[in-house]
Amino acid sequence: MELVLSLGIGVLAASGVWLLLRPRTFQAILGLSLLTYAVNLFIFAMGRLKVGAAPVLASGTDAAGIADPVPQALVLTALVISFALTALFLVVLLAARGVTGSDHVDGQEPGRREQGLGKSGR
């Protein structure tokens, strides 16, 4: 199970980083989402992996028999925050697409950039 989880985190993170380095804003937001999934799984794994254990300490259960509730609480907070910020990023992305007419992360197509620079003399 540890191997599967760590491989999963690794693949998600690697794909996320690759997408993040691509030039289109849509790829960037997908990359950020994948990286967020990887990090959330990582936080979850930091509470140690346990199967069939509730994160609630009922009377009579041994403390060793329960899952650590703190990382689960952390992951919940992180999920909510990253979800909200991804939505916000999406709005800015659409605004940038609308204003600049391009979905390149620089707001300009690479070819046009040199022309623009030449024209303004900078």
Binding site: L20, T25, A28, L32, L35, I81, S82, L85, T86, L88, F89, V92, L93, A95, A96, V99, T100, V105, D106, G107
Partner: peptide, 15 residues
């Protein structure tokens, strides 16, 4: 908007 796009992306990664 252009500056904000880069700013948000960088800070999301920092988070």
């Amino acid at each position: 908007i252009r500056a904000g796009l880069a700013y948000i992306a960088v800070n999301l990664i920092a988070s």
